[in-house]
């Protein structure tokens, strides 16, 4: 896992990463990623609070890279979070807003601007054998796919917010026609 992260990091950094955007259901992809961490949540005895829109939310993204982003920020929340982890996805006008928040008392989380720096990690994280690259990669991938990402900290809650453009309706319709 660590090697893979470093490899991805190198690829992202030197531009050797190909991005193939297709129409993705961002919500479905989030659900699948959340469930892939089902055992981890169980082991940590944390039940995530999940808020999702009723309808599918489509965006033009590379599904494997979107999965990588989800994995990295969910893993980060699982490693650093305690008591509470909340995940929300909101579709507003033409954007999709993802929030992953976790309760934490770790000192380093209180400086959210720093968390995207490569190899930035708390001592606690070192013990968890993390590379300190997860969020850095998530940021790079988000930006490469035209999204924006920020970290914030308030009232012992550390959060990552990612915003992607929703696929416009004409794209959505074309895809539907091709399928049928």
């Amino acid at each position: 896992m660590q090697c893979l992260l470093i490899l991805t990091f190198v690829r992202v950094q030197n531009g050797g990463l190909t991005i193939t955007p297709v129409l993705v259901d961002v919500k479905q992809c989030l659900c699948e990623n959340l469930f892939s961490f089902y055992e981890d949540f169980k082991n940590r005895e944390i039940e995530p609070k999940v808020e999702l829109p009723e309808e599918a939310c489509y965006a033009m993204l590379d599904p494997s890279l979107l999965t990588r982003i989800y994995e990295n920020i969910l893993k980060n929340a699982l490693v650093h979070g305690d008591l509470e982890i909340a995940v929300s996805l909101v579709c507003r006008e033409d954007v999709i807003i993802l929030n992953v928040r976790n309760h934490t008392t770790e000192e380093h989380s209180k400086d959210p601007a720093m968390v995207f720096e490569r190899f930035y990690q708390s001592d606690k994280a070192r013990n968890h054998q993390s590379t300190g690259l997860g969020l850095c990669i998530a940021k790079e991938l988000t930006i490469r796919m035209g999204g924006s990402i920020r970290a914030y900290y308030e009232n012992d809650l550390f959060g990552i917010e990612i915003i992607f453009q929703q696929a416009n309706r004409s794209q959505y319709r074309n895809e539907k026609v091709e399928e049928s």
Partner: peptide, 12 residues
């Protein structure tokens, strides 16, 4: 009374 289907986090 037995429950056979479990709801996971309200989403699965």
């Amino acid at each position: 009374e037995e429950e056979y289907i479990e709801t996971i986090w309200g989403i699965g």
